[in-house]
Simulated assay, not measured.
Amino acid sequence: MVPKCLGNLCDKLPVLKLQANNFHGIIPETFVNRTNLRMIDFDNNSLQGRVPKSLANCVKLKFLNHGDSQITDVFPSWLGTLPEVEVLILKFNNFHGEIEEPQTAFEFPKHRIIDLSHNRFTSNLPSKHFYR
């Protein structure tokens, strides 16, 4: 499992790469304010549950990869409030439901790559996520 004490290290770590480790269970809600994380990579594990909302505290985050796991959630549009995210990978999970239109013109302001492939979304990706 991903250790709960991980949040205690986030103020010192700029990169957290935990891909392909067969982690299982949920990602703990331990991402605290003042984090220096710029990259989080949980790709290719057996993680379940939802994307932790405490990731909203990672305001310096540029790269987030939650691909190839077993996360079951709706599209986490709240990630759009992160001002620096350029790469968002959520492929090969159990994301489902409709992807809503952005609430503001400032969601995902710097995104360059977004991979939502191989999920169970029931709507198209609104073009407002790409064009301003």
Rank of each mutant, 00 (worst) to 15 (best):
K110P: 01
K60T: 00
K53T: 12
V85Y: 00
K110W: 04
H66E: 13
S117V: 00
T72W: 02
V32Q: 15
N124V: 04
F130W: 11
V85D: 00
D43K: 05
R38P: 01
K60P: 07
T122I: 05
G7K: 01
P109N: 13
N22H: 12
L18C: 02
K128P: 02
L90D: 11
F75D: 01
F63I: 14
V59Q: 15
H118K: 08
N21S: 08
Y131R: 14
L37S: 10
L79A: 04
V51H: 03
P52A: 03
L82W: 12
L116N: 06
D41L: 02
K91R: 15
G80C: 06
D73A: 08
K91E: 07
S123I: 00
H129N: 10
D73E: 01
D68N: 13
N124P: 00
G7V: 03
T35I: 03
T104R: 14
F108T: 08
P28I: 11
D73Q: 05
I71Q: 02
K110Y: 06
K128S: 13
L47G: 15
S117R: 14
L90I: 05
E86N: 13
K62G: 10
Q70M: 11
L88K: 10
L90P: 10
N45L: 04
L37R: 06
V87G: 04
A56S: 15
P102I: 02
H111R: 10
F108P: 05
S127F: 01
P52F: 02
G67M: 13
F106W: 00
L88A: 14
A105D: 04
H118V: 04
N57F: 07
L116F: 05
P109L: 11
S127A: 14
R120W: 01
N93A: 04
K4Q: 13
P76T: 02
P14A: 03
Q48G: 11
A105P: 01
D68K: 09
Q70F: 14
N119V: 04
L88T: 09
P126F: 08
K128H: 07
L6C: 11
A56N: 01
R34D: 14
N119Y: 00
G97T: 04
G67V: 09
S77L: 05
L88M: 15
I89P: 01
F31R: 13
S69C: 07
K60F: 06
E107L: 06
D73W: 00
I27T: 04
A20H: 09
D11E: 14
T30V: 15
T81A: 13
M39G: 11
W78T: 09
E86Q: 13
N45G: 04
L47R: 12
K53W: 10
V85C: 06
N65K: 08
N33T: 06
S54Q: 01
L88S: 07
V51P: 10
V87I: 14
Q103H: 12
K53L: 07
N8L: 15
P83K: 08
I89D: 12
R120A: 00
F31V: 13
L18I: 00
R50S: 15
V51K: 04
N44L: 03
L6M: 03
F130K: 12
A105T: 12
S123T: 05
F42E: 09
V51T: 12
